[in-house]
Design a protein around this nucleic acid. Structure first.
Lengths: 128, 128
DNA sequence: ACCTATCTACGAATTTTTTCGTAAATAGTA
DNA sequence: TACTATTTACGAAAAAATTCGTAGATAGGT
């Protein structure tokens, strides 16, 4: 009876981003954050969030007339899960290859690179 | 009339992996590589590859009775595209965060870590 | 209590992706 | 040539994901 990996779809992921940024939000909040009626119908977002609730991706709580939603999984764990999957399916299991790709587009600042190097040195201290 | 980013679906990506590994392959090769009839019907793979051909994801050439397929996009560029997208949609634009995630869980070998650090030092030489 | 604005529930249509059955084409061989 | 095995073409079903319309519920104001 264990819970499955629970893979969010593309749209669900968009919504999750907003939940993670705001901790607790209404459907209206999400709808507006995504660009309002110009981008998606209100009931589209509502439906998506209802489905996410059924799947257990989000929890919710009544607050007067409306529902306030929270993400169940942390951003951290979801990121980890997605990165791991990408390493497996796209980089033949080599995290290093992904790293090189990620740094390849030269979008990282000096500060970020330094942070990475520090982390790296820590790892190299006790790597297999 | 410019070509769009051309986003492969999940299944298409599986097939592309095999094309990249083998350079030129038949439908049969792909079908077998993916586990044979136990995993997918032959015509399922065939159809997918025909669709990929229509989309311009692969090129093909008759060789006697059968078609030999090649990937149009390089593994490199596709990886880069996917990583960039992930950085944008999941890591709020921070490549560094993705890198930390990639190194965090998976155990990279000493050699790999060294390779990354070398690359990093090269980058740090002239980063913005 | 009634009206109104807002929100949810639900069903269903649409679109995209995946799957496969059937028929026709092809090449080799008897 | 006729038979057979293999491959392709095509259409359409099935499954998954996205979109939205309509009806009913809810809370607040008058």
């Amino acid at each position: 009876m264990s819970d499955k990996p629970l893979k969010p779809t593309e749209k669900e992921l968009e919504i999750l981003q907003i939940l993670w940024e705001n901790d607790v939000v209404s459907v209206k909040d999400v709808h507006e954050s995504l660009g309002g009626e110009a981008t998606n119908g209100y009931t589209t977002i509502l439906k998506l969030m209802q489905i996410m609730h059924e799947k257990g991706l989000v929890s919710r709580e009544r607050s007067g007339k409306l529902h306030m939603y929270k993400a169940v999984l942390s951003q951290e764990s979801t990121r980890q899960q997605m990165v791991d999957k990408m390493i497996d399916t796209v980089f033949q299991g080599s995290a290093a290859q992904l790293v090189l790709s990620a740094l390849g587009n030269n979008r990282s600042s000096k500060e970020e690179l330094l942070e990475i190097r520090k982390y790296l040195e820590k790892l190299e201290g006790g790597a297999s």
